[in-house]
Amino acid sequence: MSDYTPPKVWEPKESGGKFAKTNRPVAGPTHDKALPVGEHPFQVYSLATPNGVKVGVMFEELMALGKEAEYDAWLINIGDGDQFGSGFVEINPNSKIPAMVDHTGETPLRVFESGSILIHLAEKFGAFLPSDPATRVETMNWLFWQMGSAPYLGGGFGHFYAYAPVSIEYAIDRFTMETKRQLDVLDRRLAETEYLAGDEYTIADIATWSWYGQLVLGRLYDAAEFLQVESYTHVMRWAKQIDARPAVQRGRMVNRTFGEPETQLHERHDASDFETKTQDKIGG
Rank of each mutant, 00 (worst) to 15 (best):
V185M: 07
P29V: 10
E262K: 15
P36C: 07
E113G: 05
T276F: 02
H31Y: 15
M63N: 02
W211Q: 11
Y232D: 02
F157C: 09
A191Y: 05
G105L: 03
N77H: 09
D205P: 07
D80H: 07
S131H: 13
I117L: 13
E192L: 12
L217S: 07
N23S: 14
E60I: 04
N92C: 10
A247I: 06
A73D: 11
M177G: 09
G79R: 10
E14N: 09
M253T: 04
V111K: 12
R250M: 05
E61N: 09
V235R: 00
G28C: 09
T263L: 13
K281L: 06
T139Q: 04
E70I: 03
Y163G: 03
A73F: 04
N255C: 15
S95A: 14
R24G: 08
V9W: 05
E138W: 01
R237C: 02
F226K: 15
V53I: 15
A224D: 11
E275F: 01
K277H: 10
L215D: 08
W209S: 05
P98Y: 03
A122M: 11
K180Q: 13
E262F: 05
I78T: 06
R189K: 15
G148M: 10
I168Q: 04
P6A: 11
Q146Y: 06
T107M: 10
A207I: 07
Q214T: 04
D80L: 09
Y201R: 09
L186A: 09
L121R: 04
A204W: 00
M236F: 01
T176H: 03
F160M: 05
P50Y: 06
Q264F: 00
E178V: 13
Q249G: 08
Q228M: 14
T263I: 03
V216C: 05
P29S: 06
W209V: 07
D222C: 03
P133D: 12
M1Q: 13
P165I: 09
M147Y: 03
P108M: 08
D199T: 15
L215Q: 09
V57K: 01
